[in-house]
Computed example of a mutant assay.
Amino acid sequence: MRILASVLVVSAVALPCSAQTVLKSEPLILAPYEIAFVQDPSCTPGKVLKVTGAIRGLHRRRMCVALSAEQVSLTVATP
């Protein structure tokens, strides 16, 4: 019974964390190798811009990727 209860608690915590947050604008500060998903009109419909932070002196990596509707929640970037 304890195992069943612990599995239910872990799954309740893990499911909300699996959603990706899509920002309305690209963040000014992004840690190296940190990933942010941004709504961008340059990407085709159904895709979002995936921005990966870089170490000092290198440019960020940007690419359009598709995310399923179950994984996406829209928020506003905070400055």
Rank of each mutant, 00 (worst) to 15 (best):
L23C: 06
L23Q: 09
L23K: 06
S25W: 08
S25H: 11
E26D: 06
P27H: 10
P27T: 07
L28R: 15
I29M: 04
I29P: 00
L30V: 15
L30S: 05
L30G: 07
A31Y: 09
A31P: 00
P32W: 08
Y33C: 09
Y33V: 05
Y33I: 06
E34Y: 02
E34W: 00
E34A: 13
I35Y: 01
I35M: 04
A36V: 13
A36G: 07
F37E: 00
F37D: 03
V38R: 03
V38M: 02
V38F: 03
V38T: 03
V38W: 02
Q39S: 10
Q39E: 09
D40V: 10
D40E: 12
S42F: 07
S42M: 09
S42P: 03
C43M: 02
C43G: 02
T44M: 05
T44F: 01
T44W: 01
T44I: 04
P45R: 12
G46M: 03
K47R: 15
K47H: 13
L49A: 09
V51T: 00
V51E: 03
T52W: 07
I55E: 14
G57A: 06
G57W: 09
H59N: 14
H59T: 13
R60P: 00
R60E: 03
R60V: 05
R60H: 03
R62V: 02
M63W: 00
M63K: 12
M63H: 04
C64K: 08
C64W: 05
V65K: 02
V65A: 06
A66S: 14
A66Y: 07
L67A: 10
L67Q: 10
L67S: 08
S68T: 15
S68Q: 15
S68F: 14
